[in-house]
Amino acid sequence: MYNDIKLEKGLYNLSGKSFTAALEELDPSSAYTGTPLEKLDAFERQLKRFNIRISGPDCDCVEKFFSTTETAVLFPEFVTRCIRKGFNETVLRSVCAAKTVCASSQYLGCVLDDSEAYAATDQADLLPEATVREGSTATVLSKFGRLISASYEAVRQQRLDVFGVMLRSVGVRLAVTVVKEAVDVLIDDLTPITTSALTYDDIAKLYGEFDCFDMTTVITSPELASKIAAMDQLKDCPANADGKLMLPLGSELIKTSAVDDDTIIGIDRDFALEFITSTDLVMETDKLIDRQLDQMTVSITCGFRRITPDAVKVLTITAANS
């Protein structure tokens, strides 16, 4: 049971396993089906075991994690989860069709050549051919990270929920940098349609550029997103369940500083982009456990590949004052 688990630093260093995965092997969640603990994972059960409250009116302070050597082992996972939550709350989840875990720093995916026309085929004639082949150019993964300096004395009395919000904000900013690379991949070598002054007709024209695919998502800068949101045609448009504005065309409007102020990208998120990573978010755990914070480093190694070029269209505003 979860009360009998021996917590030690080595649980972070098991090959191919996260800390939570290592805990789950020792304390499977399946054993708690039908009990009051069935909605908790192995890490959350350890928080309950040591009565560490990370939210709510009775939320503990950071120093609660360092009350024993075993509870200190839990702290890096708390930090990682907070940063990961901020990272995952960004536009990444709205633009990526697939996620691939790659063991190396380079990834060579497949390419689909499907240029022959789709048409009726006479009896006994060969069917038009679509070819899947290995790509000729590898995607080189880049490392993105942040060093966070925070002395134990400075944060020991900080509430865990507030400290968690600070860490989430780091995850959000880290993700925006990653999204910039995704945007560069999406628009690379594409010929945009252009306009001198943005109107709703231009958004509709971008929508009309899609043939087989749909424009499920519109990605643009905060400045252009505000101009689109202010258009008369959007006055009665509702937000979706995630709070994102939905255009009359059925597209989700996403704003990010990763896009230039003269660019609007339309994509079919189910076909456009592949997210490739060799790691999940990585945290240096020993320093956090042994030195009580001091410095925290978090990083991710990842890259992007456009899967279906026809699932991406770009609109460029050419006038400087638009």
Results as ranks from 00 to 15, higher is better:
300 I>S: 01
311 A>S: 05
305 R>I: 04
293 L>H: 01
306 R>S: 07
309 P>R: 05
294 D>H: 07
298 V>A: 05
285 T>W: 00
290 D>N: 08
280 D>Q: 13
303 G>R: 03
306 R>L: 10
283 M>C: 14
281 L>Q: 06
307 I>Q: 05
292 Q>F: 00
289 I>E: 01
296 M>N: 09
298 V>H: 01
270 D>Y: 05
299 S>M: 09
299 S>E: 08
281 L>K: 04
292 Q>P: 00
309 P>T: 04
283 M>K: 13
304 F>P: 00
300 I>V: 14
269 R>Y: 14
306 R>D: 07
297 T>R: 04
293 L>R: 05
291 R>L: 12
295 Q>I: 10
300 I>L: 12
306 R>E: 09
301 T>F: 06
309 P>H: 02
303 G>L: 11
304 F>T: 01
291 R>A: 14
286 D>P: 07
285 T>C: 08
303 G>V: 02
311 A>H: 07
306 R>M: 09
291 R>T: 15
306 R>Q: 11
274 E>C: 11
292 Q>C: 04
271 F>Q: 10
308 T>Y: 10
293 L>N: 05
302 C>T: 11
282 V>K: 09
272 A>H: 11
299 S>Y: 02
279 T>I: 08
301 T>K: 13
308 T>K: 06
287 K>D: 15
301 T>M: 13
284 E>S: 15
297 T>M: 04
294 D>M: 08
300 I>H: 00
305 R>V: 06
274 E>F: 02
285 T>M: 04
268 D>E: 13
285 T>N: 06
292 Q>Y: 00
286 D>R: 12
272 A>W: 13
270 D>L: 09
276 I>A: 03
284 E>T: 14
283 M>W: 06
298 V>K: 01
300 I>P: 00
287 K>E: 15
278 S>W: 15
297 T>W: 00
283 M>E: 14
288 L>I: 13
274 E>Y: 02
292 Q>T: 09
309 P>N: 05
275 F>H: 12
291 R>E: 14
279 T>D: 14
286 D>T: 15
282 V>P: 01
304 F>L: 02
281 L>E: 07
296 M>K: 03
271 F>T: 05
284 E>P: 01
270 D>M: 10
288 L>N: 05
291 R>C: 13
293 L>Q: 05
279 T>K: 09
290 D>C: 07
280 D>F: 11
309 P>F: 00
271 F>K: 10
